[in-house]
Design a protein around this nucleic acid. Structure first.
Length: 334
RNA sequence: CCGCCCUUAGCUCAGACUGGUAGAGCAGCCGACUGUAGAUCGGCUUGCCCCCCGUUCAAAUCGGGGAGGGCGGACCA
């Protein structure tokens, strides 16, 4: 049994933005049976970015909400990710990996976009949106998501469909990384013109690039950690990560903001899934440590009590544990 | 449909006018230094020069054809 404030806390913890706070509090007052979703373009392997929003889904399930995972095959197709056959297939793999990661099969509804996005009613609503939304607006919403750098007509249809999905999946809440922000705002501002009600949105952070702490960790340009990675690969990637002993690294010489990706991974991936974090440390450096919260670990890293090298070794071990079931599943599937 | 511009290393581009089988910066990799990474220093890798045909002893470079990409083509100024 949870109280209202507990539910609100569960829903909003480790998010960077709530739109709007008022609407979310209303939802948190009675979350039981309410529906939330995240949409993913099926891509080969589940990586840390997917898992980050999945962690939020786990929070929502804990609060009693129903969770819908949209396997956005039509969206992926519109974004030039391959043929429908290929996309559907990777969608099925993705579903398995989400389950292996820890989503409860009985509490999670997996839906392919193509199951409803070609219904006549949907398509006609889409056309209505095309009529009311501005090209410029749709393109800006799409800018962060778009794969192909040359804008196609499909790219501008894409965010409009997302706006509609939130209605057609009968949701009470939309979840997404902060890169989905403009799409969600588009939904909120345009959907009412069709006579529907806009929904609140919750945005998770975008993890910083592992190697530099600058910009976002991108799966396309290489260094993310995915379920395909071996324990050794995880260890190597983590060990190569940028990790000054602080939560707020100095900006680069070019003035770009930097994060500490190692701490981010502790905060958003390790602590949400483990109650305590044990650091195995050689006697010569002071012996083992144990943490029950992200803050205490981060504080020790800043004070020098916890050396980055030990933090990294620990992080690699825990990430590997998170990934292991999915990795096993991938191997069994081959 | 017509016109102009672009296409060379993973990325941004130089080299083309005055043919002699290719360069820089960044990235990447390796090593040194730090009990991590970064910074710093030292070293290293990489190319169907978009494709085809032609001229030539010799073509990234010149000529022709083609492909892909970008931009433009009412009026006003």
């Amino acid at each position: 049994m949870t109280t209202d404030t507990d539910a609100y806390d569960l829903l909003t913890r480790r998010t960077t933005e709530v739109i709007t706070d008022e609407e979310l509090r209303e939802l948190a007052a009675d979350p039981e049976g309410k529906r939330a979703y995240v949409g993913y373009e099926p891509s080969g392997v589940l990586h840390l970015g997917h898992m980050l929003t999945a962690n939020k889904l786990l929070d929502l399930q804990e609060a009693g909400m129903e969770v819908v995972v949209l396997l956005a095959d039509v969206h992926a197709y519109l974004n030039g990710k391959g043929t429908f056959e290929e996309i559907r297939e990777t969608g099925a793999q993705m579903r398995e990996q989400f389950l292996a990661y820890g989503l409860d099969e009985d509490q999670t509804e997996f839906v392919y976009g193509s199951e409803f996005q070609t219904d006549e009613e949907y398509v006609l609503d889409l056309h209505e949106l095309e009529l009311s939304a501005t090209l410029n607006r749709a393109q800006r919403a799409m800018a962060e998501i778009q794969g192909d750098e040359t804008a196609k007509v499909s790219h501008v249809v894409y965010p409009l469909m997302q706006a509609l999905d939130i209605e057609y999946l009968d949701l009470d809440l939309a979840i997404g990384g902060l890169d989905q922000r403009k799409v969600h705002v588009l939904h909120r501002e345009e959907i009412e013109g069709l006579g529907y009600e806009s929904r609140p949105c919750l945005h998770t952070p975008i993890l910083a690039d592992l190697g530099t702490g600058v910009g976002k960790m991108s799966s396309s340009s290489g260094v993310t950690i995915s379920m395909e990675d071996s324990a050794d690969a995880v260890e190597q990637k983590v060990n190569n990560a940028y990790c000054p002993p602080t939560r707020d690294p100095e900006p680069t010489d070019d003035g770009e903001d930097r994060e500490n990706p190692v701490l981010e991974l502790f905060q958003y991936h390790v602590f949400p899934r483990f109650d305590t974090v044990e650091v195995g440390r050689p006697e010569e450096y002071g012996g083992d440590l144990s943490y029950e919260s992200y803050d205490s670990l981060a504080a020790d890293l800043e004070s020098g009590e916890l050396h980055p090298a030990d933090a990294k070794q620990t992080l690699a071990d825990y990430l590997d544990e998170l990934i292991r079931p999915g990795r096993q599943k991938i191997r069994d599937g081959e």
